[in-house]
């Protein structure tokens, strides 16, 4: 599992540098969360990706797209090398997930705050159709400053939409600065609990811990949120907790150093 995380980080950084733009910080913080999903939590089959009974996963923090692209590639949805076309003309790997090019994404995202509402719509539709699948939404911590997140949290809590789980990638930063400095979201547990949600706290870089939290959340009979504590830019010393790389590609020489660092961690 650790090796897969390192592989994902390699492809994330390589594809963003090849594109010349993108969001390394919020992509690297997402890696273990996505590995938990595609490593077993998500009922999803690469050979039948549009099965109506598949679990749905919406990446509401759409700027984390490079992580989604790398992890899906590493799980056999397409040759992972293809992510090197990220952000290039005609590529299915658009800057933010775009279902016209990339139907695996379930929803086009990129304007923050909308994914949880989309997830509610999908979860209600599943219930109406008597389908057993689950809907998951990955949020950013800064994203939760959007009012719509709390409109949707209020709705799901009040209506006990139990086939819905959110994950917040709490990496502590947003574009301008630390979330604690811009608009602090703590206490997370109390906020979501007050809106009728069950909360699960975990180390967002421990794939097994994220997996355990997601599996517990799936069957608890309530809308649940996994509060995944992560580090922005995780895994590379240049980017880890360095918000300069929120939305800036590594230069080719920085990339070379980062890949060597990841190689060393691999060994």
């Amino acid at each position: 599992m650790k090796n897969l995380a390192i592989e994902a980080r390699r492809w994330i950084l390589k594809s963003i540098t090849a594109a010349g733009s993108g969001h390394p910080g919020g992509s690297l913080s997402l890696v273990e969360i996505l590995l938990a999903f595609y490593g077993g939590v998500l009922k999803h089959d690469p050979s039948n990706p549009k099965d109506p009974n598949r679990d749905r996963l919406i990446l509401s923090k759409g700027h984390g797209a490079p992580a989604l692209y790398a992890v899906l590639g590493l799980h056999g949805y397409y040759p992972v090398e293809e992510v090197m076309t990220l952000r290039k003309m005609g590529s299915r790997f658009q800057g933010h997930p775009d279902i016209r090019f990339f139907p695996l994404a379930e929803a086009s995202t990129g304007s923050l705050g909308q994914g949880l509402s989309l997830g509610i719509g999908m979860a209600i539709a599943a219930r109406l159709d008597g389908r057993p699948h689950h809907t998951y939404v990955i949020l950013g911590d800064g994203e939760c400053q959007e009012g719509q997140i709390w409109e949707s949290a209020m709705y799901a809590g009040f209506h006990k939409i139990a086939n819905l789980t959110a994950v917040v990638d709490i990496n502590g930063f947003q574009l301008d600065d630390a979330t604690k400095k811009i608009l602090d979201l703590e206490p997370w547990e109390a906020k979501f609990a007050a809106f009728g949600w069950r909360t699960y706290d975990c180390d967002g870089h421990d794939t097994a811990a994220v997996t355990r939290a997601l599996l517990a959340a799936r069957d608890d009979g309530a809308p649940s949120v996994v509060l995944a504590r992560t580090a922005k830019g995780k895994g590379v010393s240049l980017t880890e907790n360095n918000n300069e790389y929120h939305g800036k590609a590594l230069t080719p020489s920085q990339l070379e150093e980062a890949l060597m660092e990841l190689e060393a961690a691999h060994a």
Binding site: R56, A107, G113, S117, L118, G119, G121, G147, Q148, E151
Partner: peptide, 22 residues
């Protein structure tokens, strides 16, 4: 579905339902 006084939430919930075939 009476979403309450939350038009943005309603529009996106509707989109989610449409994505699921409603």
């Amino acid at each position: 579905f009476n979403i309450g006084i939350a038009e943005a939430n309603m529009a996106a919930i509707a989109a989610g339902m449409a994505l699921a075939g409603k």
